[in-house]
Design a protein around this nucleic acid. Sequence first.
DNA 1: GTCCGTCTTG
Length: 635
Amino acid sequence: MIQRLPPPTQKSDKEETGPTEGESWTTRLRVLTDAGRHGEALALLRRMFRHPNPPPDASTLPAALLAAAALSLPSAAAQLHSRAISSGSLAHPFVLTALLSSYSRLSLLPLSRRLFADVSPSAPAATLVVAFNALISGHARHSLPSGALALFRGMRRSALPFNAVTLLALLPSCAHSAVPPLHACAIRVALTGEPSVANCLLSAYARAGAVDLARQMFDEMPNPKQLISWNAMISGYAQNGLAPRVLDLYREMEQSGEVEPDPVTLVGVLASCAHLGADSVGRRIERYIAQNPAHGSNIYLKNALINLHARCGDLARAREIFDMMQKRSIFSWTAMIAGYGMHGHGVAALQLFERMRASGIRPDGVVMVSVLSACSHAGMTEEGLEYFSKMERLFGVVPGPEHYACMVDLLGRAGRLEQASDLIKSMPVEPDGAVWGALLGACKIHKNVELGELAFKHVVKLEPMNVGYYVLLSNVYSDAGRLDGVARIRSMMRRRGLRKDAGCSYMELEGSVHLFVADDHSHPQARRIYEMVVKLEALAKEACGVESKKDELRNEKGKILPVTGFHSEKLAVAFGLLNTEAGTEIVVIKNLRVCEDCHLFMKVVSNIANRKFVVRDASRFHHFEGGVCSCKDYW
DNA sequence: GTCCGTCTTG
């Protein structure tokens, strides 16, 4: 039934009118709570209690309790509780479960438990099931997943039939290992056909990292699939860092023509575009959003777009979106600050951070990571140290391992290796792989074998399968001419079945992506590209007399190893020069960090060819122009 | 009329 309601107002108690002719108090109350007008609902309730004619009965209490919980008013809930006792309606299933649920929403879980304990085991099964569901959800809400599961087991011991509501309450917060058994339960009682349950299972598998099982559930869903199912699968891939699969699935969704993407879809896809540096897909989505007025003001989308442009090299566009926002969340500020940091604009990052604080937003741990890493990339060591010391004192953010990793990086880059390792020793929390990894990285820059070995010893214990650290130490050794060390790392990697990640770079040209892998000839223009690299290298050598490094590196059998191969970024830059007009900026995205040799190459070539190269590597952006890089060789 | 949720950004 559709009720005609006056628009929401901030009416005072006295102004709140009673029900109109032919409308009961209870109906009016429910209309108000359904519309989310909980304040008015409670005002009405107060009038009901003052003029109890007809007296409020059991049918009034559930809606009233809902309103009390929504307004975070424990006292109101307690009053309603005593009303229920005095009127003898506590045993009424709807009153009981509404009360259970209200207490748990009000963070008064012990009261819910006590109520639950008083429920008679001989109550009708339907009542018991709903009471169990309410208490299970209360535990799940308070991140007590094992308590929720224990209740579920109790439910089954009592031979009570669980239902979709039970599973929907359990799945979102349950432990990874609990997902398959709950799935089995769902199958046994034929609940997997229920779309909400299937979507929930899909998300639970994805959260547990079992994306292939999630995908299997997705594929088994009947067509046309719900938008929510597409979104769950897309976000599942995105949360697991599987950006290419996100883009594949998004394309499939578009081609199916079943559903239109909504902001939830687009946010997941944009995050993956940002991750990959897939500028053209991202920009296409941006145009799509611009055409949909309903999406235009969505703050999630705006934040995702800021992140996209910052990570694809267009800081100006990111800033434009940021400046035009009417409302900004901490996500907006963080994306923008991190953007400046990645591009080496430390001063701009800090200015923005101060503006954020002035606007009344309290810094959190994530924005502090962006601030510290911005200082690190810009070589603003003293500023970084100052913000780190202010973190806890002024902002109430307790430094975690991720902040220590930033500081070790900051000090390490600046050559203050001893101070960096002292900082690690002083850590009140256990250092993680990133902390030791940052020290190892600093040892690579400053060629410190001894400390590098120490850092490596710790980091392999914590992340034995992370290839990057083996490569780093191997490079430390080879820079120091310690070929025994290089050989040792290589055999260690071989024993553990680890292979060096292939370096790959890509650039977009007229909307299509061109991928380059080191020493790979599969690109249609490979011949021309390799010739171009050789030509450019010769020119570069001529221009600054630089020789490619380390010709003398040999393997265990004494055979000379070709060290300076055709790295992917050189191929990408050569391709860019061959296929774009003079003056066009060439943007390259790379998976690993740029090596010194390629960095030098690109500096020199930017001068020779009079071109601007923008290269995003695994740690930051490099803007090459006129023979210099924006990182000031500090990366 | 009570229990529940699946999808969102740094």
